[in-house]
Amino acid sequence: MNIVLLSDFSSASTHMLEYAAMLFKNQKVNFTILHIKAPCKGESCSGKCGVVFSQNLKKDQNLLIKKGYHTNQLQTKFIEGAYIESIRSVITEDQIDLIMLGNSNKGAYSTGLFFDKKTLEIITKVKCSVVLVPEEATIDLPRTALLPTDFSITSDYSIFNILTSLPFVNQTHLSLLPTGLNKTLGPNRKHSKELISKVINSLEFKSVKEIYSTNKASCINGFDLVMVLAKNLSIFQDLFSSSIDSLCRPEVPILFLHDSRKL
């Protein structure tokens, strides 16, 4: 499994690295620790920033070595270029299966969500599943997971393929949380619900059950992991709004699921 660890050398990024080290311990994984910045303007930099960032990436690499990872499992990359386009290039060139990045809940972001514009663009515009690790998340294997869904998927279920590669799935109890219950579940969504349930039950979770809650988002911190279909923006607003009416401030890792078909 090939995993990109997006680092900006903040405390949130360091926490994400520690979470990744725990999550994939003793697994066959390859990590690419990646830092991207906009190109320097003019000649004032003279390449100095590349040296500094390469040194910081080396520190990140050493953190994972101390956690038991071998150097042949680790590579670092520093790219000066457009942010999303650079990530897409790495995803394609290195055949990346998963992106991980840290998140701080301390700021107020223009997105109206609990993460900034760059993070939102990674989640919605890059064709790869993403694990977002809040700085408050505990460093423990997930034992309980929540999947809010309105059963709106109608055709392709490869969006769940990444779950077959995650080592904790067969030790995790999954709860399905239906959303949009104020709407009639029409024939298409009813059929979709049956198919999603069939797919989920084939993934070897320790158990799967359906739960109901009027405060759908307020319960997410009662789980160790939340899974969200990355293209379902209505659920984004329910779960991750930073407005005063928001039901919850996420403090657990969030797995944003993307269709895993190759481009």
Rank of each mutant, 00 (worst) to 15 (best):
N161M: 02
L239R: 14
L203F: 09
F160Y: 11
T214A: 14
L113V: 03
T154V: 03
L195S: 11
Q55I: 00
I84D: 01
E136S: 11
C49D: 02
I33E: 03
L141M: 14
L166K: 13
I87G: 01
K183G: 01
C49T: 04
L247Q: 13
S10M: 07
N72S: 06
E18Y: 10
I65S: 08
R249C: 06
C128A: 13
L64W: 11
S158N: 09
Y157G: 03
N182K: 15
V29W: 10
I3P: 07
E251F: 10
I87Y: 01
S89P: 00
S260T: 00
L176I: 08
P178I: 07
V130F: 04
T14I: 06
F240D: 09
M100D: 06
A137E: 02
Q61V: 05
L185P: 04
M100C: 07
S44V: 02
I99M: 11
L64P: 01
S44A: 12
T119D: 08
K77N: 01
T111P: 02
T119A: 12
R189Y: 11
K127E: 06
A21F: 07
F151R: 12
K66W: 02
E135C: 08
I84R: 07
R249S: 02
D140P: 03
S7Q: 10
A20L: 15
L233H: 13
S54E: 03
K209W: 01
T149L: 09
F168E: 04
I244E: 13
N103H: 06
K198W: 15
Y212E: 06
V126Q: 07
N2A: 13
K206N: 15
K37Q: 11
L98M: 09
I196W: 09
L120H: 10
S192Y: 15
K190Q: 11
V169F: 00
G81F: 06
K206R: 15
K231E: 05
I36E: 05
A21Y: 06
I235M: 13
T149V: 03
N103V: 02
V52R: 14
I3D: 03
A108C: 05
Q95V: 00
S13P: 01
V226S: 14
K125T: 02
S152Y: 10
L233Y: 11
E18N: 11
G47C: 10
Q95H: 07
R249E: 05
A20D: 07
G180Q: 15
D156C: 05
I235L: 15
T32K: 14
C49P: 00
M1W: 04
I99H: 11
K125F: 00
K193L: 12
N201Y: 15
N72M: 06
S89D: 05
L57A: 01
S129A: 07
H258D: 01
V130L: 14
I79D: 02
N2C: 08
I79K: 13
A137F: 05
L263S: 12
F168A: 09
E121H: 12
M227E: 09
K193H: 10
E80N: 14
N170A: 06
I36A: 12
T164G: 00
D94F: 13
A12V: 01
L166I: 09
N188V: 05
N62S: 06
R88K: 12
A12R: 04
E204C: 12
V4F: 12
K67R: 10
C45R: 12
